[in-house]
Structures are given as C-alpha cells and as structure tokens.
C-alpha cells in the first residue's frame, strides 16, 4: 500500500473525491482480475465471491462518482491511478489456486482493513474540513465493508478441516 505525489495537507475536496474513486477503481479491477484467475484455475466459489466484491466496489465507486459530478461536473482530474498502489485492492499474493471461499473472504477482509488503515493514517495531515469529513466517512465505509465480508464469512458452513492440496493434481510441467 502506498501513495505517491499527493500532498494531503492541501488536498482539495475534488481531488479527495477523485482519489477515493480511483481507490475503488483499483480494488474493483483487482477483484475482477482475481475472479478471472479463479475461473482459469477452476476455483468457482472463490471466483463468485470475488465477483461479489467487484459489484460492491463498483457500487461504491458509482456513488462517489455521482457526488463528484454533482459538485464539480467534469472539471479536469489532477490525481491519477499511477499515484496509488494497492490501497484497497488485495495484494496479488493473496490469491491462490483452489482457494476456499473462506480464504477468499479473508483476503478481502485484509484489504478492507488495509484501506481503513490508509484513511486513518491520512486523517491527521488533512486541513480542509470537508476533506476530513469525507475521509472520515470513507474510513467508516471501510468498516461497513468489513462487516459485509464478516456477514458472508459467517454464512459459510464450518471448514471440513481437510486441505484442498490433498485432493488436487500435482502442477503440470511445461
């Protein structure tokens, strides 16, 4: 998780909204990638969950975008995707072939925690009150997301205790 080229002290509300949108964008894309990886590795339950996360992130992204357009129309954007690194997107390392839905959910949970930490860490530097309010809101939003994932986790039947690795084929040489 990292961010580059952003001066939090002088972050404007427009830029803060754009930043938040990009964070959701990045997460949405990563979940999409994970879902594809799971499809390719025939891990359908995890793929299904990652698609659910794509939807969540997209929805949140759309809400933020609506607010941005309402306030600032299509005024040019000055923050870019190149400035943010895995803020809410799960790390690539979090995915595994044949991962159980439980593991997939834990990966998502970890990235929501990561995003929460990001907003918390940014808060002290913020000067603009509107921006502060937005970040607080986003921070709380991440808590909501964590709850959401926890709800999904709770729905899972108990773990069989068996490892998938005991059933799957060996990797194939190329």
């Amino acid at each position: 998780m990292a961010i580059q080229g952003i001066d939090f002290a002088n972050l404007s509300l427009k830029d803060a909204l754009d930043l938040a949108i990009l964070v959701e964008d990045e997460a949405q894309e990563r979940y999409e990638e994970f879902a594809t990886q799971m499809d390719q590795h025939r891990t359908p339950d995890a793929a299904k969950f990652f698609r659910y996360m794509v939807e969540n992130e997209a929805k949140h992204g759309r809400e933020l975008l609506a607010r941005r357009i309402q306030r600032f129309g299509d005024a040019p954007r000055s923050v870019t995707r190149a400035m943010i690194f895995d803020i809410e997107a799960p790390d690539y390392d979090a995915a595994r072939a044949f991962m159980s839905p439980r593991k997939a959910m834990k990966a998502a949970l970890a990235s929501e925690v990561k995003a929460y930490d990001f907003f918390v860490a940014a808060l002290p530097a913020l000067k603009d009150t509107e921006v502060r309010a937005l970040f607080e809101e986003l921070r709380d939003e991440e808590l909501e997301h964590q709850k959401l994932v926890n709800v999904e986790l709770a729905k899972l039947p108990p773990d069989s205790g068996l490892s998938d690795e005991d059933f799957v084929d060996e990797p194939a040489a190329q």
């Binding site: 590795h41 025939r42 891990t43 072939a97 044949f98 998938d164 059933f167 799957v168 084929d169 060996e170 990797p171 194939a172």
Partner: peptide, 11 residues
C-alpha cells in the same frame, strides 16, 4: 477430463 483442481490425473 477435468481441471488440475479436480485431481482427475491422480484418480
């Protein structure tokens, strides 16, 4: 036939 995750080769 299946996928590597199905363990069909080990079957």
């Amino acid at each position: 036939a299946g996928s590597g995750g199905d363990g069909i080769v080990s079957a």
